[in-house]
Design a binder for these strands. Sequence first.
DNA 1: ATTCCGGACTGAATCGTTTCACAATGTAAA
DNA 2: TTTACATTGTGAAACGATTCAGTCCGGAAT
Lengths: 335, 335
Amino acid sequence: MAISVKDVAVAAGVSVGTVSNVLNRPDKVSADTVARVQAAIADLGFVRNDAARQLRAGRSRSIGLVVLDVGNPFFTDVARGAENRAAESGLAVLLGNSDENVEREGTYLDLFEEQRVLGVLVTPVGDVADRLTRLRLRGTPTVLVDRQTDDLNFSSVAVDDVAGGRLAASHLIEGGRSRLAFVGGPASIRQVGDRLQGARAAVAEHPGVSLEVIDTESLSVLQGRVAGEGIRARPAAERPDAVFAANDLLAMGVLQALNMQGDVHVPRDVALIGYDDIAFASAAVVPLSSIRQPSVLIGYTALDLLLREADGGPGFAHEHIVFDPELVVRDSTRS
Amino acid sequence: MAISVKDVAVAAGVSVGTVSNVLNRPDKVSADTVARVQAAIADLGFVRNDAARQLRAGRSRSIGLVVLDVGNPFFTDVARGAENRAAESGLAVLLGNSDENVEREGTYLDLFEEQRVLGVLVTPVGDVADRLTRLRLRGTPTVLVDRQTDDLNFSSVAVDDVAGGRLAASHLIEGGRSRLAFVGGPASIRQVGDRLQGARAAVAEHPGVSLEVIDTESLSVLQGRVAGEGIRARPAAERPDAVFAANDLLAMGVLQALNMQGDVHVPRDVALIGYDDIAFASAAVVPLSSIRQPSVLIGYTALDLLLREADGGPGFAHEHIVFDPELVVRDSTRS
DNA sequence: ATTCCGGACTGAATCGTTTCACAATGTAAA
DNA sequence: TTTACATTGTGAAACGATTCAGTCCGGAAT
């Protein structure tokens, strides 16, 4: 049914080896043979079978990327950065969405390994060290994205989330707030823990400032709204006067819950800061202060590192690249 | 280097055929043989080589999805819907981002064809009928997403964008506005054209109402901002009193440009409505009225249709599924 | 005239899985 | 006892592109 190199070879009156050469090393073939073969290819509508090619080559020409949430613009930006770098080397990026779910994460890692991808970029949900170590030992290089790690066996590209958390909390405190709340979860996600840790550090330096933790099930707008409703339902005296949300999606949910009802007002009653500085943050009901991460650059750098690691072989020295976060002040923290 | 079925067979003391059976039809193999083989698999860390499997099978177990813009939450929702349906059948979705660029679209279609995907879901950039016809003839079924077509050779899943455009414009007119502007482009994207056409139809029914078209280069927040700046710079008398943006991203850009400077106010001076009703629309500076599309359902349905078409063979009767859009009124059109 | 060389091309072997016709064994029915 | 039949397992062929040792040939060097 399908057209193979063999059919092309017959049609062009050459051997299959020559067809392959035309495809991969046209300079090794005389000009008119190239022309004849290409004519045959066009005639028959031949399309290379990537599976056969991969089988022979032993490796595919794509990279797997597993993100926590495709619905989060931060991750689509990371993906965009990775895709840009991949395109430069003629590679494809396969995007998998774990939805903060360990099982789905595993499914994608399995799939990518069966596909013999060149390497894997992961923003891990939980503790996947074991999983990834096995992957690496079997020959699939791995780079952790948006996650610092002390594990010397992996390379990583991340933003200093502890510093980011500190930046956010300090900003709130400097704005005169003293009853802070951290909205985020689950704690198993490292980013969440790190940002909280940074906030705690900042709070610890300021006597009289308290920090309450409001746990969420995931990092979504919906969960933010739930947390926000909880805050709004409290008597004024027990409400925090500032909220640091673990990401912008949560922050926007909190904002919706608080501001749309009119009784509690951001920033008058509650100052609010998010994390990631997604494009929509500046367009929110109350433009949202946030901690900016260089998302596209993170993706680009991670893939670049992955490719270097894939070339370097197993003896490659793992690198840990850390970017600095940046405070972006908007109305939501201006009183 | 890599472990193959052969190695597993030797380790378990069985033939390769039996290993394959354990993998694919364990009920055809005695219980203790299954156990022995699985132990060997675990021992050796065997991972199926998908390329070889595909080569033999002739088709892969994944579906290609090409969207106009991964940065647009509408499309990530569509992707999510498709992924859900795919997961039900144990298939994977490969996501490609054309960024409204014909060339990139072509690159992804080529890639997917070389991968021998089960089928392709496309939100086409321009006129890709030729391209897709060839694909289909060579055996890769295709479903157009978010695009109605009169072409009887393709199935499609879409929303009635003409109706949506009419809905949006009618709403603005009923709110007392009479100098409408449509912000959107490029016109080569069918959604844009359809929505405009619907708006034109609504305007035509109301004497005294005018419709101006402000063209944009793409459907992004940035382009919306550019269009908004243009509107703001005009003398008040020449400004439209209502804007219908071809999607929410544009609308949010327009909103930023108009409202953040303070002199022109939405909705007082300019009413504004978008399209897609992305999650962020309700959280905008001024909560955005919009035309809602059932995005997740569109993706789910499209993939479902694709699978039916793939099963049905080339003789399958193409279907055209059209969903109805829904008006969502928020502050941006309330005067 | 002979040798040597390089360019152009050939075709069999290879990658790892699945499939399928077939063999071997045991068990029930005739 | 023979026949029939199911169960379990075997191993070679096939999928399609790439690679590589080797053939062929015309021309340059000796």
